[in-house]
Write a protein that binds this DNA or RNA. Structure first.
Lengths: 114, 114
DNA sequence: TTTCTTCATCTGCATATTCGGATAAATACA
DNA sequence: TGTATTTATCCGAATATGCAGATGAAGAAA
């Protein structure tokens, strides 16, 4: 099912989510929604797609659901993802996403004042 | 346009062509058609897709048109492709494709009797 | 020229993908 | 209980993608 893997990567919204998750480790839907600056249902829909493709895992914590890159990703897919993230992280719109996330106020897991 | 790259990889016929080209270096359409055992217009259509995505280059030699992985592929895309080919080459249907190609009679570039 | 081979493209159709907007479900909190 | 927040899903429509089969275009060889 390698086509399923690449199909999951063949969309800008999903790639932006993956690049952010690779950088940050774990993010909730509202953080991703703020960082990408797109409607929330769109983020949820694409995260569901990534989850069904086995690329991300989710974890509920109170009212938030945190997503992360799937720890059991096949090694070659992990290497492909790492190469991709390294190549894209400094490009647009991925770097802007990271900047918006860093500037986001009231992030759920963050300390209030540091 | 990384989505364009991954979209090009998100189809079995195209992946099979790419794996064969990576193994063999250069192949004409009739060799690919024989190796994949699918209708020729299907191969041509997907090769055109790969060409428009910048993944392969073509070269006319008489009545044959030879395709190869594009020599100017961005380095990170080359690494992704190499990881992918290494992971898939021994899997089905990619290994069967290589076997059918090896057993093909009357290949255009081959010597007649060795 | 005619014929053959190779390859590309067109036509018609079915399916898949994506979207925005509305709504539902689950949790936290008053 | 009721309300606010977070997340998921549904709906309808537009667009994209894939296929098979037929046809077209280009070169080779008679």
């Amino acid at each position: 099912m390698p086509e399923r893997f690449f199909r999951a990567l063949a969309d800008t919204t999903r790639l932006r989510c993956l690049v952010l998750l690779a950088r940050e480790g774990e993010l909730c839907v509202c953080e991703l929604t703020h960082a990408l600056a797109v409607p929330q249902p769109r983020v949820s829909r694409h995260l569901a797609h990534l989850r069904e493709a086995g690329l991300v895992a989710d974890r509920r914590a109170g009212q938030w659901i945190y997503y992360r890159l799937h720890p059991d990703l096949p090694p070659w897919q992990g290497r492909v993802l790492a190469e991709t993230v390294a190549a894209l992280a400094d490009e647009s719109p991925f770097c802007e996403d990271a900047a918006r996330l860093a500037a986001m106020a009231g992030r759920p897991g963050a300390a209030c004042c540091d």
